[in-house]
Nucleic acid binder design. Structure first.
Length: 197
DNA sequence: TTCACGATTCTA
DNA sequence: AGAATCGTGAAG
């Protein structure tokens, strides 16, 4: 994934991340990877963004250079992972909300907290550059994967700026955390994710 | 020092 | 629909 990819507004990067791979390798230990099927964009122009009010120690990473991970703890129990975007000194990022892992239960990483848990992401990854050397990185989607239909809808779990349609997901994937109103694609329980979504 | 609050998940 | 859970920041 080229550096330039992240130097764009979050709402442009977010849909482009759908279909990309997130890959984690723990030293020479086992490799885990999957297809990103759901993302949300956040930018300091709107009140739902962590960087909307002021720059603090907690949200500092979001203001930092694009191409890094921004990880925070939510509700005391779960980590959420973002990709920092746009430009330095400008808070914006893309929240990774769901990933389909081929061969695994299709709901195992379906939600930002579950995703981070499955990939072993925690505070140690906060402010870490996105690179293979750091054991957590992104790779471009296959040509066929990038052809799939993407749904654009409103973000969830927030109180502010509900009017923005800054959530995107892969329509055909059953690993999406929550579907838009009117999207009747069924969820199956206890079935495995396919090689492609 | 105290208090209220989540970019969530699980259970009923 | 409601609870669990805890780091952070604002208030006192």
């Amino acid at each position: 994934m080229q550096k330039k990819f992240f130097f764009r507004p979050a709402e442009l990067v977010a849909p482009d991340l759908i279909g990309c791979f997130l890959i984690r390798s723990e030293g020479k230990e086992k490799l885990i990877g999957g297809i990103i099927v759901e993302t949300e964009a956040y930018s300091q122009v709107e009140p739902a963004c962590h960087g909307f009010r002021k720059r603090t120690k907690k949200n500092e990473t979001l203001f930092g250079p694009p191409g890094h991970f921004y990880v925070y703890l939510t509700y005391g129990s779960y980590y959420c992972v973002n990709v920092v975007t746009d430009k330095t000194n400008w808070a914006s990022g893309v929240l990774l909300r769901a990933i389909a892992i081929p061969g695994e239960n299709e709901r195992i990483a379906s939600g930002p907290g579950l995703l981070s848990r499955k990939f072993g992401i925690n505070k140690r990854h906060d402010n870490l550059p996105i690179s293979r050397e750091n054991g957590l990185w992104l790779a471009k989607p296959s040509a066929s994967e990038s052809m799939k239909k993407i749904v654009r809808t409103t973000r969830i779990g927030i109180k502010e700026a509900k009017y923005l349609s800054w959530r995107w997901y892969l329509q055909s994937s059953r690993s999406v955390s929550k579907r838009a109103k009117g999207d009747r694609t069924p969820f199956k329980k206890n079935s495995l994710s396919p090689l492609t979504n």
